[in-house]
């Protein structure tokens, strides 16, 4: 579903991602774990065209990320950002924020779809006319998820989806994501610094350090402590 081959991303002279390859199967939930500066978020941003200076190859659902126009790629892959306080337009109501991607794609039946999406993420229809500053962090992240689902993508890229939230809210959002994945047959690529979140959510994971891939593990391997890198051990001890 997602194929990343020998991707290198540069920010000026600095190398943010160095020759990373990974493969995510359809319906799978794949985790990228590492600390700040490991390049894990950069991979996500590169896959959706938010970075410019990169080499290698990324295909999503058979579409080449470099050559496919964003408008088309948008119907296959969407992203949920880390900070729900910064990812919703402060002047747009919830309804408008969720409808915007569909307006861009000139879809039909937008109004009904907004109601349906709100239902899907567990907020009632009265939220349509609320502004982001009237919502809690968890509610905002739900809205951001609804917006990402508006175009019915098959792949969802989640960049630290719960790290700005309280633990009790984190549990609700993680549950919601699990339910959505099952219900809508989604493929997840999740980035987190929290190994516990990744172990809970992902079938397989890749550990990253200093812009390189350290190793790829299945959830079972992680739980059986069958890893080779001392760095993975360090992360595990800190979790």
């Amino acid at each position: 579903m997602i194929d990343v081959r020998n991707v290198t991303v540069r920010f000026g002279d600095a190398v943010a991602v160095a020759d990373v390859s990974l493969h995510v199967r359809p319906g799978e939930s794949f985790g990228l774990v590492g600390e700040s500066g490991s390049g894990k978020s950069t991979i996500l941003r590169t896959a959706v065209g938010l970075t410019s200076d990169w080499s290698g190859e990324i295909t999503i659902d058979g579409y080449d990320a470099k050559s496919t126009p964003t408008r088309e790629l948008a119907q296959r892959v969407q992203m949920v950002f880390q900070d729900p306080y910064a990812s919703l337009h402060p002047r747009f109501t919830v309804g408008r924020a969720i409808a915007e991607p569909m307006r861009i794609q000139k879809m039909a039946g937008i109004e009904e779809r907004v109601d349906e999406l709100l239902r899907l993420i567990g907020l009632d229809a009265s939220f349509r006319s609320r502004y982001p500053h009237e919502l809690s962090g968890g509610q905002r992240q739900r809205v951001a998820i609804a917006r990402a689902l508006a175009l019915q993508p098959k792949v969802l890229l989640l960049d630290e989806p719960t790290s700005a939230l309280d633990v009790s809210v984190q549990a609700e959002i993680l549950n919601l994501l699990e339910d959505l994945r099952a219900e809508l047959d989604l493929t997840f690529l999740i980035v987190s610094h929290n190994l516990a979140v990744i172990s809970h959510m992902c079938d397989r994971l890749m550990v990253m350090q200093d812009s390189r891939a350290v190793e790829v593990l299945t959830r079972e391997q992680l739980r059986a402590r069958e890893f080779s890198s001392p760095y993975t051990r360090k992360l595990l001890e800190a979790a």
């Binding site: 938010l50 964003t70 790629l73 948008a74 919703l88 991607p101 951001a144």
Partner: peptide
């Protein structure tokens, strides 16, 4: 929030 609409095309 601008990136999000950019991603929507």
């Amino acid at each position: 929030y601008v990136n999000a609409v950019r991603l929507a095309g």
